[in-house]
C-alpha cells in the first residue's frame, strides 16, 4: 500500500517535473526561459532557412532549398487567396510565419520526452519544457497579437465609427443594442481565446500522453508511442494549419466593410 502511494507520487512527480517550465522571476514578472529560448531558436531556424532560400532565389530552375521554400510560400499564398480578397502586404507573410513557427513549436513534441530534460540536467538545468506550444504564454502571445491586428484593421478599414456601429447594430438592429454589443464583444474576445486554447490544449494533451507512455514499462512504450507519434505528425501540422487559416479568416473578416 505504502509503496503504491510512493509509486503514484513518483509518477505524479515525473509528470509535474516534465510540465514545469524553467522559470526566473516572481509573480507576473516570471519568465519562462525555456519557452523564450526554444521559440526564439525555432524562429531563428525558420528565418534562417527562408532567408537562405530568398538570397538565392532565381526565376530560373530552383534549387532544393528554394523549391521547398517556394512550395510553402505557394501553399500559404493559396490559402490567403482563397479566404482573403483584400490587398494587404502583411497578411501573407504573417500567415507564413504563423504556420512555420507553430509547426516548429509543435514539432518539438516529437522528440523523446526525456532527451532534452536529460541533456538539461547534465548541464545543471533542473526543469526544461521544450515544446513552446504547451505554454499558454506562447499561444496567447500569438493569438493576442493576431487579435490586436484584427482590431487595428477593423478600425482602419471601417473607421472607428463604422467598427463601433458594427459592434452595436449587428446582427439584430439598433433596438437590441445592448444585446448586440454583448454578443459582438463575446464573439471578438472568443477569437484569441479559442485560437490560443485550441493549440495549447492539443499540444499539452499530446505531450501529456507521451509522458504517460514514458511511464510504462520499456517493452510496451514503442507499441504505444510509435502510433501516437505518427498520429501526432498529423496533429502538429493540422494545428499549425488551423491557426494560420483562422488568422487569415479573422483578418479577412476585419477587412470586410458591411
Amino acid at each position: 500500500m505504502a509503496t503504491e502511494v510512493h509509486a503514484a507520487e513518483g509518477a505524479t512527480g515525473y509528470i509535474i517535473h516534465h510540465l514545469t517550465p524553467l522559470h526566473a522571476g516572481e509573480g507576473f514578472w516570471t519568465l519562462h526561459l525555456d519557452t523564450l529560448f526554444f521559440s526564439a531558436l525555432l524562429g531563428g531556424l525558420f528565418v534562417w532557412f527562408f532567408k537562405t532560400a530568398a538570397d538565392k532565389a532565381t526565376a530560373g530552375v530552383p534549387g532544393l532549398v528554394q523549391n521547398f521554400a517556394e512550395m510553402l510560400i505557394e501553399f500559404v499564398d493559396n490559402q490567403v487567396k482563397d479566404s482573403f480578397h483584400g490587398n494587404s502586404k502583411l497578411i501573407a507573410p504573417l500567415a507564413l510565419t504563423i504556420f512555420c513557427w507553430v509547426f516548429l513549436w509543435n514539432f518539438m513534441d516529437l522528440f523523446p520526452v526525456d532527451i532534452f530534460p536529460l541533456i538539461g540536467s547534465v548541464m545543471g538545468i533542473e526543469y526544461l519544457r521544450v515544446v513552446p506550444s504547451t505554454d499558454l504564454n506562447a499561444t496567447f502571445a500569438m493569438s493576442i497579437s493576431v487579435f490586436c491586428l484584427i482590431i487595428f484593421y477593423s478600425i482602419k478599414i471601417k473607421g472607428p465609427w463604422g467598427f463601433a456601429k458594427e459592434l452595436m447594430f449587428q446582427p439584430f438592429g439598433p433596438w437590441l443594442l445592448p444585446f448586440n454589443l454583448l454578443l459582438k464583444l463575446v464573439e471578438e474576445i472568443a477569437k484569441p481565446i479559442s485560437l490560443a486554447l485550441r493549440l495549447f490544449g492539443n499540444l499539452y494533451a499530446g505531450e501529456l500522453i507521451f509522458i504517460l507512455i514514458a511511464l510504462l514499462p520499456w517493452y510496451i512504450q514503442p507499441v504505444l508511442s510509435f502510433p501516437w507519434a505518427i498520429f501526432h505528425i498529423l496533429i502538429i501540422t493540422l494545428q499549425a494549419f488551423i491557426f494560420m487559416v483562422l488568422t487569415i479568416v479573422y483578418l479577412s473578416m476585419a477587412h470586410e466593410d458591411h
Partner: peptide, 18 residues
C-alpha cells in the same frame, strides 16, 4: 506572466523580418 510579452516581441520581430 511576462513570458507573454517576450513571446509577442519575438513574434512581431519574426513577422516583420518575414
Amino acid at each position: 506572466n511576462a513570458t507573454l510579452i517576450g513571446q509577442m516581441i519575438t513574434f512581431a520581430l519574426l513577422v516583420w523580418f518575414t
